Each structure stands twice: as structure tokens, then as C-alpha cells.
Amino acid sequence: MPVNISASSGERNSPASHIRLVVTDMDGTLLTPEKQITPRSIETISALHAAGVPVCLVSSRPPAGIEMYLDAIGLTTPYGALNGASVYNADRSIHTQLTLPPDVISDTLDMCNVHHLDTWLFRGHDWLIKNSAGPYVATEKRVIRQEPVIVDNFAEHMSGIGKVTGSSTDYTMMHDQELEIGRLMEGRASVARSSQWYLDVTPLNANKGYALCKIAEMYSVAPHEVACIGDMNNDLPMFDKAGLAIAMGQTSPEVMAQAHYITASNSQEGWAEAMRTLILPRAVSVEQKQS
């Protein structure tokens, strides 16, 4: 189907003319609203592979929520979980891992409690919750196909935490809390919404831009030779690092303004069309770079 791809009206450096690596968000981007990957997207990943351009996933999801798609997509590439707090090798072993200091976790939990956000902790492959009846627990279980570990309190589980997530059905309040908690955590942690209903707090240097750079290092590729694509505020750090940044069509004007190009939505094959229109014509094999 024809898809309109437009240049962003935001002020950015010119997009890269050669791309050797693609780093992509999952929810709202590669995945449809039904959390599926379309046959056209899978074909496009194969075309990128044939051109020598690896496709790597970077998501706010825990590792299990990413790994469940790797075999289906046919990917054997590194990936980043928890907004970049954990970066994994292609064999699913940990490449790098950043964790939150206990005082940051405690302060975040206090702030979430004041505003009645349901809170979760993520450590390695574990998802820790206190309230099994939280408004998005059932949804998350279905999306990542993982059962949470229910704990009586979080005080005994403060070590090794890569992400704290607060959730609420009040989207306006979540927007406001992204700003408020972000200000309070400035210089201590990264704070960004990964959807309208999830607010993620990760280690200060743990964001998708960090993950993009770590994955690029694995391939001996410079960040300006990387293309990225996403739809939410937590994707903006990788927009800042990549040589070519693409926003999905359903995203906010703020995210669009930070991209080089805007593609169609994730319900209209926007991911595949962006790759075929913008990336494949610029593709240069990563093996050529390394040789």
C-alpha cells in the first residue's frame, strides 16, 4: 500500500547518507497495535540482512519480552532491554548492565506512592510487583508472556534493579509526572514515558541512546552510521545519537520534531515502508565497514 513519508519540520543536522546498522523500538514501532510483526516487516528485515545491515531491538521491555520475538523475526543480533539499562549479546548473555542506587529507588517509590502510581521493579529477568490487581498487570503479563514475582514489600529487593516503572490510567497525570519526577531526579536517573500509561526510571546513563552506542560499538560502527526509529519520549535519546532518526506517524509533535523523517503509523506498515524507502537505498554492509 502507498505510504507517505515526510521530512520533519524540526531543526536537525542532515540525515546520514550511508547506514550500516538499524536500531528499532518495538511497541508502537516495529509491533502493530496488536503486538504483532507483519509479514512485510519480516520480509524487510530479511532484505536488510541481505544488504548487510543488522537490525537490533532496543525496548523498555524486560529481556523476556524482547526474546520472545527474536526467533519469530529470525534475529540473531544484540538487543537492549529496560530502556538500555541492560544490553545483551546475540547469544542472550549480558554485555553491559547498569543498576539504580537504592536511594534513587526509594525516592522514586515515594514519589510514585504520593501520586498513586502502581509501581514495579525489574531486575535481570525478574519482574517484581506488590499489587497483583494493578491496572496494567494483566496486560503486561500477556504482552511479555511472563509471570511477575509478587513480594510483600520492595525494601528487601533494592539491589540490582535496572528499572522502576510507575503506571496509571490517568494519562494527563502521567505526562505531568514525567516532568515532575524528571526534575526531581535530574542528575540522578533517566526518566521517560515508554507509553501513555508507563513512566520508567532507569540509571542515569541508561537510555536508548546509550544502548544504541553500545550496540554500534559491537559492530565497530559509528553512531552517525546508525538509523533508529521510534514513537515515544524514551526514544529521543537514540534520536540524538543516530545519524538518521525516524518517527512513527502516530507519535506526538514533540517526538516528530526531533526526527529527520516521519513515516506512517504502526497500523499502516510505517516501519517497513520507512526501511524500504529511507534505509535500503542508503544501506552499506557492516562487513564492508569491518573489512
Rank of each mutant, 00 (worst) to 15 (best):
A81Y: 04
V87C: 06
A81C: 06
V87F: 14
A64H: 09
A51W: 13
A85Q: 07
P63K: 11
I66M: 03
Y79G: 06
L57Y: 03
Y69L: 06
A72N: 07
A50L: 13
A81L: 06
N83T: 14
V53R: 01
V87Q: 01
E67H: 04
I73P: 02
P63E: 09
A85E: 11
E67G: 03
M68Q: 13
P63V: 02
S60N: 08
H49E: 15
L82K: 00
A50I: 11
L70H: 02
V55E: 05
E67V: 13
I73H: 05
T76F: 13
A72Y: 13
T76G: 12
S86D: 12
A81Q: 09
A64L: 14
P54G: 12
T77P: 06
A64W: 04
G84L: 08
P54K: 13
L82V: 12
A81R: 04
A51F: 13
L75C: 11
A64D: 06
G52T: 10
S86L: 12
N83Y: 05
I73Y: 08
T77R: 09
G84Q: 04
T77K: 11
V58H: 03
S86Y: 14
R61S: 00
A72M: 12
R61N: 04
V53P: 03
R61L: 01
Y79I: 06
L57P: 08
P78R: 11
A64G: 07
L82G: 02
C56D: 05
E67M: 13
G52C: 04
I66D: 05
M68P: 00
G74E: 11
P62H: 14
P54Y: 11
V53W: 01
T77F: 15
T77C: 11
N83Q: 15
G84K: 07
V58G: 00
G52V: 07
P78M: 13
L70P: 03
L57F: 06
T77M: 10
G52I: 01
E67Y: 01
G65W: 01
V58Q: 04
G74Q: 11
T76K: 15
S60M: 03
P54V: 10
P54T: 10
M68Y: 02
V58S: 04
L75G: 06
P54M: 11
G65I: 07
M68K: 03
L75S: 05
G74C: 10
M68S: 05
V53S: 02
V55Q: 05
P78D: 09
V53I: 09
C56K: 03
S59P: 08
S59Q: 01
L57W: 06
C56P: 01
T77S: 15
A85P: 01
I73L: 15
Y79A: 10
L70W: 04
S60H: 03
H49V: 10
V55C: 08
Y69P: 00
P63L: 10
S60G: 15
G65V: 00
P62N: 14
I66K: 06
G65R: 00
A85W: 03
D71H: 09
G80K: 08
S86N: 11
G80Q: 08
T76W: 12
D71L: 08
A81G: 06
V55Y: 00
M68R: 05
V87W: 09
G74K: 09
S59D: 02
E67N: 10
R61I: 06
D71W: 00
V58W: 01
A85L: 08
T76C: 12
Y69G: 04
